[in-house]
Simulated assay, not measured.
Amino acid sequence: MIRTAIFAACFAMPAFASEDIADKYPQSVLYDKPIEVIPNVWSAIGATAPPTYENAGHNNNLSFLVTGDGVVVINGGANYKLAQALHAEIKQVTDQPVKLVINENGQGHAMLGNSYWLAQGVDILAHVDAVHEFEEREAQILAGMQRYARENSEGTELVRPTMTFEDTHVIDMGDMHIEVLYLGPAHGAGDTQVWLPDLSMMIAGDIAFNGRMTPIFTDTCTSCWIETWETGFAPLNPTYIIPGHGYPTNLAQVTHHTMGYLKDLRTKIGAHLDNGGTLDDAYYVDQSNWEFLDTFNELATKNAGTVFAEMEFE
């Protein structure tokens, strides 16, 4: 019953796009309490908003797998206190120890909580490109988190993953066969997917968004992202998806909210370029059909300019 309600909720989200989204779990530094999406696959769903003091940086999904012989955590969290809070929730679910943490990319909300997990003696796995991105920007990432999180940043130190992989890392633990995948360039460097083929469950990371507009970085290759989706991600045809941001859902929903948006924006920017349009005017291409996505107000204009710069010399 609970899981049915979870999947139904993702199609009935309120149509507003603002970072002013109330905390759902005020007694914890977590934005929301973990839910069991399917048996033994849990996720604490983050705010569909930018990182703020109110959400302590919990604006992505922090997931964990209860395998029968240990727990695998997906995402270190945005700071030490978020990782600690997630661990407290895991202990309420199972007495199995956490044996591995997987960082889904090199961003702060995936890696800054690593200091907590390493202190517990837990190995941390990430793609080599994600580690390189974190190494290049770690001081900046930490400083940014400290500004918005304030006292919630206490205890956080820069800790890089202890293990890396390049293409696929397979884990057989307890009752679960887990495939940690790098399918190709997507939202950011080293974007990682955790695939549970026996359960048809994909913990997608930032290749997939639901109910929230994706930020497009200056080093994001949107054409590469689309190709990775169409040649690597979609053919796996998962029944269940926990996206990097937004509620658990299905392939059709994240295809619409992620690929639909990227393809539509590229089409409009392409037409703008064909008509001799400038960067100044590109910011105002019509994206009103995506206004229902959270963070539309914060990201739509920026995304248009970034895609213009990307496509101008394609």
Rank of each mutant, 00 (worst) to 15 (best):
F11M: 01
P14W: 02
A22H: 03
S28K: 07
V29D: 06
D32Q: 14
K33V: 13
K33D: 06
I35N: 05
E36Q: 15
V41Q: 07
S43Q: 00
S43P: 03
A47T: 08
N59V: 04
N61S: 07
S63G: 12
V66W: 12
D69C: 04
N75D: 13
G76W: 02
N79Y: 01
L82G: 05
L86G: 11
H87S: 14
E89A: 14
K99N: 02
I102L: 04
I102P: 07
N103G: 03
E104G: 06
N105A: 03
M111Y: 09
M111H: 10
L112V: 08
L112W: 08
G113D: 13
G113K: 11
H127G: 01
E136S: 12
E136I: 01
A139P: 00
Q140V: 12
M145A: 11
M145V: 14
Y148T: 00
A149L: 06
S153V: 00
S153W: 01
E154S: 06
T156W: 03
V159M: 11
P161E: 09
P161K: 07
F165I: 08
H169L: 04
I171K: 06
I178C: 08
I178M: 09
E179N: 07
E179P: 03
Y182D: 03
L183F: 13
H187S: 14
G188H: 08
D191C: 10
V194N: 12
D198G: 14
D198V: 05
L199H: 11
S200A: 10
I203A: 04
I207V: 15
T218S: 15
C221G: 14
S223D: 10
C224F: 10
I226Q: 13
G232S: 11
F233I: 15
P235V: 03
H245V: 13
G246D: 05
P248M: 04
T249E: 00
H257N: 12
T258H: 01
L262N: 04
G276T: 09
L279S: 02
A282F: 01
Y283E: 05
N289T: 12
N289G: 02
E291A: 14
F292E: 01
D294L: 02
E298F: 05
G305C: 01
T306M: 09
A309Y: 01
E310W: 09
